[in-house]
Design a binder for these strands. Sequence first.
DNA 1: TTGAATTTGATTATTTTTGAGCAAAATAAA
DNA 2: TTTATTTTGCTCAAAAATAATCAAATTCAA
Lengths: 249, 249
Amino acid sequence: MSYQSRKQIILKILEEKGEAEVKELAQQLDTSEITIRRDLGTMAADGLLFRTHGGAMKLSLVNQPVSFAQKSNMNASQKEQICRLAAAEIQEGDVIFMDCGSTVFKLCDFIKNKRIKVITNSLPVVYELMNTEVEINLVGGEIDKERQAVHGAVAQEHLLRYHADKAFVGVGGISVANGLSAVSEKEAEMTVGMARQAKTTYLLCDASKLETTKYLQFASLSLIQVLVTDETNDAILAPYREVGLRVLN
Amino acid sequence: MSYQSRKQIILKILEEKGEAEVKELAQQLDTSEITIRRDLGTMAADGLLFRTHGGAMKLSLVNQPVSFAQKSNMNASQKEQICRLAAAEIQEGDVIFMDCGSTVFKLCDFIKNKRIKVITNSLPVVYELMNTEVEINLVGGEIDKERQAVHGAVAQEHLLRYHADKAFVGVGGISVANGLSAVSEKEAEMTVGMARQAKTTYLLCDASKLETTKYLQFASLSLIQVLVTDETNDAILAPYREVGLRVLN
DNA sequence: TTGAATTTGATTATTTTTGAGCAAAATAAA
DNA sequence: TTTATTTTGCTCAAAAATAATCAAATTCAA
């Protein structure tokens, strides 16, 4: 049996079991341990597996990339509903902004198969869309590790280069009286930046944020054009409609 | 039986079984082993199959695309040695460029605990440094999914805003006669951009790339100041020293 | 038919692959 | 830590596969 054949079998075994020992492989492939060791050596050099003492492991078990654990599992069903509504607004060929909020992140699931261009400052969004049809443009600048996103002056200037059909943004709080508010200046800055460069700005906002105000009030309601929410109580939504907002729910 | 008829049968057998041995084929086609070897040789040259020792395999079994993760694990120990040398050059407080090569990526392991600032266009580098002390600045622009990196005109302009103490870059090939060469215009552009904005440019280059030239020749040796390599043969390295390069090995 | 070109097979030399033994290194155990 | 065990890397030799060379057989075209 040739090296190539053994290689296929070893990879298959690793794929199934995750790891394997030299002895075990030698027995299964009916060859000597030294041959297996040599095989594992070259395969490790080719980056096909991770060599351990006494055996080998599947690569993905060793160097798994940072997983972007999103807080997006909170209120998952509400967020999904909001994103379903938002995604329905997106046309093939659109250029859209997506900011770094957890609700906006969920939108990824609904646009993976659309042929659109996404401009974002959110690393989880980039990661999520990496293996899809979507073209991605990443905002450059300093990375805010806490938010897993790019913020700052250079990021703002980067935004100015682009114009998009739609911007999808999140927010800390929204109220008819006080407009939009945020918990972070950075996020507020990015929200404003994207909204200014987009024809239409969609605010994705679950019911718990309606009629709340966070510490930083940063823009009036006129910054956005569409409010997408899971709130069903028309008494709460009516005032937003009255000031000219389109409301999707 | 003619070569053409044997060729059809061999291809059919490979299609069914995935692989076959010379002996086995000689028996089935009622001919000598040397003839089969000759057949397999020409067929492999024509790209119809993959030649193994003792036989042949179907191409689809062998030609799997190599991912970035695999590339970065190829020749891992050489790359580690190179990166250890490179990392020793980095001082606390430095601002450094890192490009999107797989050798440069390995440098991440050695700088995680340094208090430095990294400017990069490589997403794997960003992910790898996300949970470390390192401050990260991400080059903005269009994402090249194949290379998992940012490239293009906007990325170039982004680079111009920054100056760094050191740039750590990879390359497709390097030779005293032809200078630096690459397999992709995008990578070459980024390499030049980083080198121009850095006081000192370090080329991380494993021995296999020394004295090779890839299809795109994009800069002379004067672009870089330091060559970091695992090559130990001074006869090969001497010419680089003679033209004024500092060589670390 | 003749003769040139091609294909095939045999023989030998070279290369590649494999396995064994032993010292060095790494891991586990005390 | 020290000691014992396992695993590995190394060199060398045997075996297998291959390449190279040359001769025989076949094919093809006048």
